[in-house]
Design a protein around this nucleic acid. Structure first.
Lengths: 120, 120
DNA sequence: GGTTTTACTAACCCACAGGTTAGCAGTAAC
DNA sequence: GTTACTGCTAACCTGTGGGTTAGTAAAACC
């Protein structure tokens, strides 16, 4: 795959190609819980109720829905162990989001600092 | 500012610090139009109606709201020229989102390819 | 002087993300 | 045998992101 360089981001042609791709990516990880779930699972595979406790505030219904979405998009794998225990596992594909997450986090920190310094 | 390295993303401690930051960032650029507007402005400063035509499908009301959000968050600057023309300008701070946009676009392309290849 | 364009705002509507509460079949603990 | 936990789903509610239509004051065009 071709990778876009930073300078190309302001370049018109590349820009037009990138727009829908960036939107697609956003569409998949946007929402109140997606990132939190991936991050929680990044710290170890978890059972449904473990996950619910880790993400204080999420309801069973919503967690169930979000997990289904993430599974559909291939970011989370549902494993049923021999003893019947169900595990939600953050898989390799979710790891491919590292770059995105790291950039988001970096920018988020920058932004918070800007606000703290009353630059906005 | 400290920058998080990729390997740190799966590391528990860093992970916890990064979670809210990534969410903050997402919160600001999520939504149907934010990215499109920034990209459109990235290709040159624009007047209100120019922008509306460039983003086919957006209503005046929504565009007005989105621009206010972006202005509030410091990503877009509203300039009134001497002759009264109003220009919306993508500023330096919006450029600091380059890394995020580029990673999003890269991952979006990867994801589309995965779907095209029926890997999901 | 009439029409068109600019830069919006007001009033209203609706789908849906997300929340609340309740319940339920299966398993484990005591 | 009953209590508690697991892994959900059903029914229902609400807020809001976003859409539609209409209108308006001011400037620009013809």
């Amino acid at each position: 795959m071709e990778t876009a360089t930073l300078t190309e981001v302001r370049d018109g042609v590349k820009c037009i190609e990138m727009m829908p791709a960036a939107e697609d990516a956003l569409y998949i990880i946007a929402g109140k819980w997606k990132v939190r779930i991936l991050m929680a699972l990044g710290m170890g595979d978890k059972r449904f109720n473990e996950l619910q406790r880790a993400l204080s505030g999420i309801s069973a219904r919503v967690l169930s829905n979000e997990l289904k979405d993430l599974e559909l998009n291939g970011l989370v794998t549902k494993q049923t162990l021999a003893n019947g225990t169900i595990l939600y596992v953050r898989n390799d594909y979710a790891d491919s989001l590292r770059g995105v997450m790291s950039e988001l986090a970096k920018w988020g920190l920058l932004h918070k600092q800007k606000i703290r310094n009353r630059e906005i």
